[in-house]
């Protein structure tokens, strides 16, 4: 049955998906090819949409793939299944770290993994920034000077990226308000 296949596939993804987002997406592609005949083009479109819709990219992809494969129930099955392993592991770990947080081994484990977190976020910064400013869809292309639009980077997107970082990071502005303003600028400029 298609639902049990979806549930099993997405549970596996939840267990094996280290590194979040994009790593999980390649796992999704591998494991659904066993039971759907979704073209790689359809999958690429789904991933593109998942990256520009609100919410975690992996959850968006799971919801969409589940929907395409087996309708609304399919999307529920995929999304819930990908979350279940996290749920079990995290609640166990949360309990254990609370209990043993003063042990040398747990302190050492945290000291070892904390710097890796920085490395992981740093590499996510690169994978997110490059496509956002590479200029595939240029903001304000309709009326900005042509010379500006021929540059290899989308200067408007780059400016939005830098302004967001400064407003939230340096000037401690409310991130929700910053996001609403940036979204409005994008909507006004259009692509």
């Amino acid at each position: 049955m298609i639902y049990s296949k979806l549930i099993w596939a997405f549970m596996k993804i939840g267990i094996l998906g280290f590194g979040g987002g994009l790593a999980i997406i390649s796992l999704i592609r591998d494991s659904i090819s066993e039971f759907t005949d979704m073209s790689s083009e359809t999958f690429a479109n789904i991933v593109a949409i998942a990256q520009v819709t609100p919410g975690p990219v992996a959850i968006n992809t799971a919801t969409y793939v589940g929907f395409e494969t087996a309708g609304i129930l399919g999307s529920v099955a995929a999304t819930v299944s990908v979350a279940i392993p996290s749920f079990i592991m995290i609640t166990l770990i949360a309990r254990m770290t609370e209990r043993y947080k003063n042990s040398r081994a747990v302190k050492g484990a945290f000291a070892g993994v904390r710097p890796v977190t920085v490395g992981m976020i740093g590499s996510a910064l690169i994978t997110l920034t490059l496509p956002a400013v590479a200029g595939a869809s240029r903001l304000g292309a309709g009326f900005l000077p042509e010379a500006l639009c021929k540059l290899p980077v989308d200067v408007v997107s780059l400016a939005i990226c830098i302004m967001t970082a400064l407003l939230v990071g340096k000037y401690k502005k409310n991130p929700f308000i910053v996001l609403i303003i940036m979204g409005a600028i994008g909507g006004l400029l259009g692509v």
Binding site: T129, V156, S157, I160
Partner: peptide, 12 residues
């Protein structure tokens, strides 16, 4: 597109 660029800023 703007929210994607803003997300990159948040990751920074």
């Amino acid at each position: 597109a703007a929210l994607r660029a803003a997300a990159a800023g948040l990751v920074a």
